[in-house]
Amino acid sequence: MTELLEPQRDREQAVAEYRRVRRWGWWYVAEHRIRSMRNYVGSLFIIGIGSPIMYLLGLGAGLGVLVNQNQGDNAVDGVGYLEFIAPALLLAGVMVTAAQESTFGVFGGFKWTPIFLGMRDTALTPAQIVTGFALGTMARYVPAACFYMIAMYAFGIIHGWGGLLMIPIAMLLGTAISTAVMAWVSTQRNDRGQLSFVERFVMTPLTLFSGTYFPLETLHEGLHWVGWISPLWHTAELGRLATYGSEQTLWLTVVHILYPVALAVAGWFLSVRHFTKRLTS
């Protein structure tokens, strides 16, 4: 014990440890988040498997049949209804999970179980905390996205290697949502019910008006902007290109990639700024 508490440590070792934190601090934060998730891994597993089966079966066997009958030969993108909505369903699930985790996880990290204050007292920087938290959030939605993708293969909704691209697309969307939500939540000092607004009045409308269940063009023109500002619409379009090769111009594909990337970068910078302000005085 005396040896353990010996304050005069080998300087070289101390420098090496500090360098390791500078390089890998963000990973240590993610590791912490993943360790916390072990407490509820069972329920994550059940939700991860149950949710895609329920949605795909329900919409495929019910609404899908009706839509396919009515569409006849005029099917959107020339594919069945389930093929059309499945990539968007996977991504909508990712969006909601990323938003939930970033809303209550970040607010709680400052207030309820103030883990960020603990992290602040170490060699970590606010930028590493933000990056690590966003990465840790991935550990919640990526396995769920994988289950969804496997279910899509199992139901015969997607074929070929293109479907695998749903995972990087999910990561792109999840990161854009995480960082954007974190940037806002980290400015909130008290919960007066505004946190649950994110899900009800931001995520739900984004899901409903982002061409998830129908093509964006079907909506009234005055509402198209919702799709354009929604990372869900952009990534759902990428998902459709990846899974069944929907028709898309190259420039639009580039926009569908760059928009969520820009959102993620802007969200990250703002989050770092707000975390820095909150953690230092």
């Binding site: 500090y18 916390s36 179980t113 103030p114 007292d121 170490t122 060699a123």
Partner: peptide, 17 residues
């Protein structure tokens, strides 16, 4: 960060996870 790498900080209010 370089200073805190060599400090042990016990804050007034516990912030354990």
């Amino acid at each position: 960060p370089a200073i805190r790498a060599q400090l042990g900080i016990v804050p007034q209010a516990d912030n354990l996870d």
